[in-house]
């Protein structure tokens, strides 16, 4: 049967796995911003080394990182070619027919490549080392200041956790409904456009109806167990900030500051 690992979480143990999700999310955000500062090749070199160290500390295999980059290659190539052809600044390097490539274009395109690779690798490290539920918990904690201005932080986090809990269940159900409809002669991969649309309808409507029924049942179950999103409630899972987290955070701040400074100075 289907056994999907959602969010590409890789269940091994490593220094990065053990870090607080709040730290990891916050760091990713800061680093993503830092990536866009033009710190020159020196800056990107330093950032690159930092990312490589993180990847090593996370014990993720190179093959897994490459697997994450693979789906993005097409988009990256497209972006790069687009940039190469349409930025017309600096000195002309090559001219073939009406295609003119300038040295600034080459530089910018290289930056795009480096940035995209860094973004993909950093995000992959985050999702590979943090369980989806821990991510949700981290996000909930980070967004909790917004509760004061009325943002339904807890409710959103609860919705995400329940959605995560039900994804495998819904996937199984989709399979079941597809089989049931296939048994009535539906062919999901063949037929005219009209037939294909009808096939999808025969899948989506039962799924929706079932999802609504589940939602109602769940609401009853939650209420019966005294759930009240507006009331105070304690949390089983506690996030514990350790010394490692502080050290990691300091490193991130240093690197980001370096990037910013270098972009100003150089």
């Amino acid at each position: 049967m289907n056994n999907m690992m959602f969010g590409k979480y890789i269940p091994i143990d490593s220094f990065i796995h053990r870090l607080d999700p709040r730290l990891k999310i916050g760091s990713l955000l800061l680093l993503l911003i830092a990536v866009f500062f033009d710190a020159g090749f020196l800056g990107y070199g330093i950032l690159g080394i930092f990312v490589i160290i993180m990847a090593l500390l996370s014990h993720i295999k190179v093959s897994q990182i490459l697997k994450a980059i693979k789906p993005m290659l097409f988009m990256m190539a497209f972006l790069m070619i687009f940039n190469l052809l349409f930025i017309q600044q600096g000195n002309l390097l090559i001219s073939i027919g009406f295609i003119k490539i300038y040295d600034q274009a080459v530089l910018q395109t290289l930056y795009i490549f480096i940035r995209l690779i860094l973004i993909i690798v950093m995000t992959t490290i985050l999702t590979a080392t943090t369980k989806p539920l821990d991510l949700t918990l981290g996000i909930e904690h980070l967004l909790s200041p917004f509760k004061r201005i009325g943002f339904p932080t807890h409710e959103v986090a609860m919705m995400i956790s329940i959605a995560l809990r039900f994804i495998p269940t819904l996937l199984e159900e989709t399979q079941r409904i597809m089989k049931a409809q296939a048994s009535r002669g539906v062919e999901f991969s063949e037929g005219t456009l009209k037939e294909k649309i009808l096939s999808i309808v025969s899948l989506i409507i039962p799924l929706f109806i079932s999802a609504f029924q589940r939602a109602e049942d769940l609401a009853n179950a939650m209420e019966s167990r005294n759930y009240n999103p507006e009331a105070k409630r304690t949390r089983y899972k506690q996030l514990v900030w350790t010394v490692s987290d502080t050290i990691a955070f300091l490193c991130v701040i240093v690197i980001c500051s370096a990037m910013v400074i270098m972009s100003i100075v150089l």
Binding site: R225, N226, Y227, A231, R233, T234, R235, Y236, Q238
Partner: peptide, 10 residues
Amino acid sequence: FGLENNCVDP
């Protein structure tokens, strides 16, 4: 879940 709703000490 139920313990959380009843504010039991984590």
